[in-house]
Amino acid sequence: MNKRTRRAAAAVGLVALLSVAGAGIAQAGTTNKPYNTTVGPYNGSGYTEYQTQYTSGASAQLHSGTVGGVYKVDVRVDGYHIGTWTRNVTDNDSRLLNNDNPKGKSVRLHFSNDLDVSKAVQVTGTWRSN
């Protein structure tokens, strides 16, 4: 392998490495990504992984699959700007979430239980920041 080929191979490797690392930090928010998190009891919280805001100020989309037991949870966008709470999300529930974040910022969803819920609640579904 000559010097030129070695340099090309190193460049390809570096690009591949950066892509993998970048994906671990935040994914572009243009496709639905699954979440599965536990929301703690007594106003406890649960969070999704981060996504990168693709369009400034675009509403995030949530498709709630299951909310544990019979409970409801509240959810908001958490990032550079924090959105307003969307209340009482249940099973098989699609919502648009207020999201004022600028393009390129990392955002995630913040789920929360009511103050009087004494049990952790498991929530699953998909979402994208847009």
Binding site: G69, V70, Y71, K72, T90, D91, N113, D114, D116, V117, S118, K119
Partner: peptide, 27 residues
């Protein structure tokens, strides 16, 4: 509080006290 927690952890969440009285935190 004990009844609220006991009912929830026994798996009868639909009958919890605050959910039955105020009905704001359960479906």
């Amino acid at each position: 509080m004990v009844l609220q927690v006991a009912i929830a952890y026994a798996g009868f969440d639909a009958f919890i006290l605050t959910g039955s009285i105020f009905q704001s935190n359960i479906v």
